[in-house]
């Protein structure tokens, strides 16, 4: 009896892992299916895109500008060791477009919108609002979740673009205006080194991140009542939201590596 206990535990956690993965998979499938299925109500998508996108713009501007500025500063310091300050433009642009833009934007969206979506849906689950939707024959996947997915997939790449542009301007500000790198060289280097592939990678990443963030946040909230640690009450919502934020942040970084490795 005593010997079999650890095996029981192992089997138990394996089973619950499989169950959870299956649930998440079916959840994503149902959401995407409902995205394709007509009708296509526009207004909820715009509302969600406004929440995820427009209301994140300020944060993205701020983080983008400072990221670009620090890149300009650090890049200048490193490049000047080799006497190649002229490469500052391409260094800033490439690191922003390929890596920092998509990743930092995604992390900001996780913090702002991911947590909010998880908490919102979790509370709706907790107070039987999702049951009420189902009883009114309103499909929560169609009504509640599909607009959020579409909004996320649209908003995150657009935010990433804003981040990139502002970041490059920030790098220009520090490099050219403050540190006296030649402005022409800054932009010439950028034109020469940034290729379509780099932009493509940035866009693919931000699309995947957008999907990933909404997926994890929405599914965590939606399946709050099935959480093993007990998803009850305010504490259940707060714990699940924390879980969702941590899990999405880690997933973003892991997928960032995977996509880079595949696309390079």
């Amino acid at each position: 009896m005593g010997l079999s206990k650890p095996f029981e535990k192992l089997g138990d956690s394996c089973l619950s892992f499989l169950e959870q993965s299956g649930r998440m998979g079916i959840f994503l499938f149902s959401c995407l299916l409902n995205l394709i299925k007509p009708p296509y109500p526009l207004f909820p998508v715009i509302r969600q895109a406004h929440f995820i996108g427009v209301r994140s713009v300020f944060v993205i501007l701020f983080t983008g500008a400072f990221t670009g500025m620090v890149l300009g500063l650090q890049g200048y310091y490193t490049l000047s060791k080799f006497g190649s300050e002229g490469l500052l433009g391409s260094a800033v642009a490439l690191s922003l477009i390929r890596e920092l833009g998509p990743v930092l934007t995604a992390l900001m969206v996780v913090g702002r919108a991911g947590s909010a979506i998880c908490a919102e849906i979790g509370i709706m689950r907790n107070s039987e609002q999702i049951d009420a939707l189902e009883c009114m024959a309103i499909d929560p996947y169609k009504y509640l979740l599909a607009p959020k997915f579409l909004a996320g997939i649209v908003a995150v790449p657009l935010l990433t673009c804003i981040f990139d542009v502002i970041g490059i301007l920030g790098g220009y500000l520090v490099g050219v205006v403050l540190l006296d790198v030649n402005g022409g060289t800054f932009f010439q280097g950028m034109y020469a080194s940034v290729e379509w592939q780099d932009i493509e990678m940035g866009i693919v990443k931000s699309l995947v991140f957008g999907l990933l963030i909404i997926w994890i946040a929405a599914a965590k909230g939606f399946f709050l009542h099935l959480e093993k640690s007990g998803g009850f009450g305010a504490e259940g919502v707060s714990r699940t939201t924390t879980d969702a934020v941590v899990l999405s942040s880690v997933s973003v970084l892991v997928w960032d590596y995977l996509i880079s490795a595949i696309m390079l």
Binding site: I123, M124, S127, E128, Q129, A132, E134, C135, M136, A137
Partner: peptide, 15 residues
């Protein structure tokens, strides 16, 4: 379910 109406225990209004 189109034929159903439900009054939930805590009303389950969309808050």
């Amino acid at each position: 379910r189109m034929e159903f109406g439900v009054l939930f225990q805590n009303a389950a209004l969309f808050d």
